[in-house]
């Protein structure tokens, strides 16, 4: 089974608009999902650069799905949904 890839945007906008709390995902995901999901911080994903879209930051990408105004809970929910689909 192919791993689900989670990218947490560490761009300035995401970090400032609340993404700092998402660093917890680095600890939670391996604990909860083992090697089924991999998580990594990423340089700016470029999602905030569209006019005023910064207000929807922070962003996380779960495979190709973009989670806006991301929180730890929201991201875990998307991962669970993806795992159930597989």
């Amino acid at each position: 089974m192919e791993k689900i890839k989670v990218q947490v945007c560490l761009g300035t906008t995401c970090f400032v608009m609340g993404g700092s709390n998402l660093q917890e995902l680095n600890e939670i995901i391996p604990k909860k999902y083992g090697d089924k999901v991999e998580v990594a911080g990423s340089n700016c994903l470029g999602l905030c650069s569209i006019q005023w879209e910064y207000s929807k930051a922070p962003y996380v990408k779960v495979d190709e799905e973009v989670v806006h105004e991301a929180t730890v809970e929201k991201v875990l929910e998307v991962i669970d949904k993806k795992l159930a689909e597989k």
Binding site: L10, G11, T12, T13, V16, M17, N43, C44, C48, S49, Y54
Partner: peptide, 10 residues
Amino acid sequence: FVAKKIEILE
């Protein structure tokens, strides 16, 4: 930083 689009990591 956000307003001026400054990427610290870069």
